[in-house]
Nucleic acid binder design. Structure first.
Lengths: 135, 135
DNA sequence: GCTTGCGGTGGAGCGCGCTCCAAGTCCTAG
DNA sequence: CTAGGACTTGGAGCGCGCTCCACCGCAAGC
């Protein structure tokens, strides 16, 4: 699917992706991907001997999850908390569950608020429509 | 309702509010209220001879509307566009209607996205709950 | 008169989430 | 051997939406 120079399964095992491809797939910039790693959101990504990042499928899955958290309004600091917990392994599952449930509540409330605001917008729009028709 | 020193209907006509009271009612800080005025979101508020702002009921209504726009994610620049149109009077109603309808679409899409993300969060939460029970 | 307190102004500063840059390394193609 | 391109790093810079600050004025109460 790419005409450029992909290594023909050069490395040892499975398929890994260069940062540019991960950027393309996630919609993040390469700079942002490196920034997330520096910020502790992403475990250190595997590297080629030359120090070039190669992202594995698990990295992509984690990134997708992070993006979900981000898109629901979670701050980088809070995502970092979650990432730190994840690094602790299974024993942190209860704590992660708590964090996630709490966040779920926040998102739920956000949706409710947006819906209320949407209804108010609709009333305003109707008001404008009426104004137009009367003139 | 206030034990402090309110002028006993000092001015000419109706009830107007000092900035501190408007801050209290809107949840904005006095600094933010002044900032919004400077940024062109609010028409110049009436002043006492000494230059002190007195907010009228119409100002509060407009502020409430602005807050709705803000809370649904509209940028200050876009709110400013809307405020500028409003200043033009009735002839800008179609343009305002367009802006508002467009924004409505954005909010609607945002709600949809949030709901999709919420469902994904719920799946993740269930996953964690299962993990806990199995152990 | 003096203090207290609320309000005014202009402008600097801040936290967030990136974004951009310079300078260097490595690999490949020609 | 050279040139080009993708990648690396550390650190500076940016746009947004406030937030804070120093300094000043005014009005009321002691």
């Amino acid at each position: 699917m790419k005409a450029t120079s992909e290594p023909p399964v050069a490395d040892a095992q499975v398929e890994t992706l260069p940062i540019a491809e991960v950027a393309r797939r996630t919609g993040l910039s390469a700079d942002t991907l490196r920034y997330y790693e520096k910020a502790g959101l992403i475990d250190a990504v595997r590297r080629t001997p030359a120090g070039v990042r190669r992202y594995a499928a698990a990295d992509l899955d984690w990134l997708a999850f992070l993006l979900r958290l981000r898109d629901t309004g979670m701050s980088i600091a809070d995502m970092r908390l979650f990432a730190d917990l994840r690094r602790l392994g299974n024993e942190s599952v209860p704590a992660r569950l708590d964090l996630l449930s709490e966040h779920r509540q926040i998102v739920d409330r956000r949706i409710r608020d947006l819906r209320a605001n949407l209804r108010a917008l609709d009333r305003k729009i109707s008001h404008y429509r009426n104004l137009l028709e009367e003139q």
